[in-house]
């Protein structure tokens, strides 16, 4: 039935759309010149991993280093987007240039995504100090956190001095994303016990600030007590406990205190140095892992070796362990490099 509709719509003259006439160089130069369109375009092309993206990031990297990156995570419904919006507004009031990366999951079925975090950020859409970018997880193997890092760097190069990365704290990918931040806020809400659930799920170690949002609802004190108790239990002697703050994004309460806490954190503490080392190591390894994997995979696919081995496994019942070690041996010639 749809044919006649398609006919109706397809024969019309199609307008030109996005042209890819911008070179990487001109986009990076545009970012430096604070051209918003250039930044948005560069982000797209880097996120798409278009050929040449790594060279572009090499050009971007020297322009970065002045931004602080704050991660915001928590369970669905905790009010992260509203809180992000309020924090951004508060930071702009204090003279900052803010970039926001809002991450939502891609559909595992279609690869598409419904990116709706902006729904809660309407009032900052037209503030020139704020740039918001919605990002889908796109099912990239460990690639999401790298892509988020890249986007944050482009925003940094543009001149955003604070970057907020907002993501749901479920799923390993999303947790990896907030780990790329300098400081991580964990958002809980009264009543549902979800906050505590998330803590158990392993976000506990990475959060630097705990926030009880919607604190005007009944049960806020209970959640606060729960969190404090947990932090006390797991703290090591002499280690300062992370702050636990109450906010209400809806009523704009506690936002200023939260901003104080975020900004007061002295840069360059020993903990920070350690964190930066961990992050650097992870980034190097993840980029390398990605490149090595891609190189090997494409070689196997192109040579037909992968197809052949798949058939052997299915038809001849060959074990996958041997398949992999043999294939790796062929590439390297040295079994000991890949054997473990």
């Amino acid at each position: 039935m749809t044919e006649n509709f398609f006919l109706r719509f397809m024969d019309i003259h199609i307008k030109k759309t996005k042209t890819a006439d911008h070179s990487w160089e001109s986009l990076v130069a545009g970012v430096q010149a604070r051209n918003i369109r250039a930044m948005a375009r560069l982000i797209t092309r880097v996120e798409n991993r278009e050929p040449g993206w790594k060279e572009a990031m090499k050009a971007v990297y020297p322009l970065t280093g002045s931004a602080r990156i704050f991660g915001i995570t928590g369970s669905p419904g905790a009010g992260k987007s509203s809180l992000t919006c309020e924090i951004a507004e508060e930071l702009v009031k204090r003279g900052h240039q803010v970039g926001i990366i809002a991450v939502d999951p891609s559909s595992p079925f279609s690869g598409g995504a419904l990116l709706g975090d902006r729904l809660r950020m309407k009032k900052i859409f037209t503030m020139k100090e704020i740039f918001i970018r919605s990002m889908a997880t796109r099912g990239m193997l460990g690639g999401l956190s790298q892509a988020a890092r890249d986007v944050a760097r482009i925003m940094d190069a543009f001149g955003k001095d604070i970057i907020l990365i907002e993501t749901v704290g479920v799923g390993q990918d999303e947790i990896e994303v907030v780990k790329t931040a300098d400081r991580v806020m964990m958002v809980c809400i009264p009543g549902q016990g979800d906050g505590i659930q998330a803590l158990k799920a392993g976000v506990m170690e990475i959060a630097d600030i705990y926030i009880i949002n919607k604190a005007d609802l009944p049960g806020a004190d209970e959640v606060m007590a729960d969190i404090c108790a947990m932090l006390n239990l797991s703290s090591q002697n002499g280690q300062a406990l992370p702050p636990v703050l109450k906010t209400s994004a809806l009523k704009n309460q506690g936002i200023s205190e939260l901003a104080d806490s975020l900004l007061s954190h002295p840069a360059g503490s020993s903990k920070d140095t350690l964190r930066r080392e961990i992050q650097a190591r992870e980034e190097i390894l993840s980029l390398m892992e990605n490149d090595v994997f891609r190189a090997i995979r494409s070689r196997w696919e192109q040579s037909g070796a992968l197809t052949a081995e798949v058939r052997k496994m299915v038809e001849e019942n060959k074990d996958p362990y041997s398949i992999v070690s043999e294939l790796l041996q062929q590439i390297d010639g040295k079994a000991d490099l890949f054997s473990s």
């Binding site: 509203s82 975090d117 729904l119």
Partner: peptide
């Protein structure tokens, strides 16, 4: 009272 904020789809 504040203003109503839509929920995500």
């Amino acid at each position: 009272f504040g203003e109503f904020q839509q929920t995500k789809l």
